[in-house]
């Protein structure tokens, strides 16, 4: 059915017609072909997802699935429960992100220190990154969240929220420090040489010349990790923090219906998709800048 349509936009015979002549004509032609491309994209999307929906809806057990995942009544009941619970997640990832960005930067700088004197610091930073990237986050959350309060050391916090933030910070700062480090290494050594040749100390060269450029360069991957962090906040439900996922589990168990999970999924979609688009925009901007800079 789409056969005749898809052949359209690359129909070169039409585009290179000798009558086309001057630039205004050509640009009108270009506009027309752009419109055609858009139409084709639209039609093919509708057809593709139409077919997909048809297959799902005509699956043998669709009525049962519809009842347990797409139940309107339960949807309406669980939204007022679940959406406010997301506030806990927001708090979790905002607080953690601040600590992550700071701790990871420190780690990345430690790993970038040159010279034999700093070997112990480099070793520590490397070991940290290796260990916390190797162990699954959920295990860190369990071990800290259940293990440390169990020691019953006086003065040590017992709040699960506290251990949630600590665990997420430990895990994510290991990843984020690698992102920073890649950024630092992407700055050409001649920049540091130029700074040092002016008499700046190594720290000053790092602080004023290398890091500002490095951090700017890694903002898109940093945001990417931030998206990952947002989703991983649901893991702390396992040590008893009542956040969005825990709340939807409670609702699911009460109604014996999976619709609350769908609500939760939608909340995450709504929050992460704009961020993902922002990452795209930033990457595109960097690319343009890079191409412009290349002269």
């Amino acid at each position: 059915m789409g056969g005749s349509l898809t052949g359209g936009p690359l129909d070169t015979g039409e585009l290179v017609s000798p009558a086309a002549g001057g630039p205004p004509l050509r640009s009108r032609r270009f506009e027309r072909s752009a419109l055609r491309s858009t139409l084709i994209a639209l039609v093919s999307t509708v057809v593709f997802f139409g077919v997909l929906a048809w297959i799902v809806v005509h699956a043998p057990n669709w009525p049962d699935v519809q009842r347990s995942f797409f139940n309107g009544t339960i949807w309406n009941q669980s939204v007022p429960d679940i959406v406010p619970a997301f506030g806990v997640n927001v708090e979790l990832f905002c607080v953690s992100e601040v600590f992550i960005l700071v701790l990871a930067l420190v780690l990345a700088v430690l790993r970038s220190l040159p010279g034999p004197v700093f070997f112990p610091l480099r070793l520590l930073a490397t070991a940290y990154a290796d260990i916390f990237r190797a162990i699954p986050g959920i295990l860190i959350i369990y071990l800290l969240g259940f293990g440390i309060p169990a020691l019953q050391i006086p003065g040590v916090p017992t709040s699960t929220f506290f251990y949630a933030v600590v665990s997420l910070t430990l895990v994510y700062s290991a990843y984020v420090s690698e992102v920073y480090r890649a950024g630092i290494q992407s700055i050409h050594p001649s920049q540091e040489a130029a700074a040092r040749s002016l008499g700046l100390t190594q720290f000053q060269a790092l602080r004023y010349v290398v890091l500002p450029q490095a951090v700017r360069r890694v903002i898109p991957p940093l945001l990417n990790d931030f998206i990952g962090l947002q989703k991983d906040t649901v893991l702390v439900s396992y040590i008893g923090v009542v956040e969005i996922f825990r709340q939807s589990q409670i609702d699911q168990a009460a109604a014996f219906n999976f619709t609350p999970y769908l609500v939760t999924a939608l909340v995450f979609l709504v929050i992460t998709i704009p961020l993902a688009r922002l990452v795209d925009v930033l990457i595109a901007r960097d690319r343009r800048r890079f191409l412009a800079g290349a002269r």
Partner: peptide, 15 residues
């Protein structure tokens, strides 16, 4: 280095 200025082939300005 404060007393020695150096200018490089590739400028090395801070972008």
């Amino acid at each position: 280095r404060r007393r020695l200025g150096i200018v490089f082939q590739s400028f090395n300005l801070f972008p």
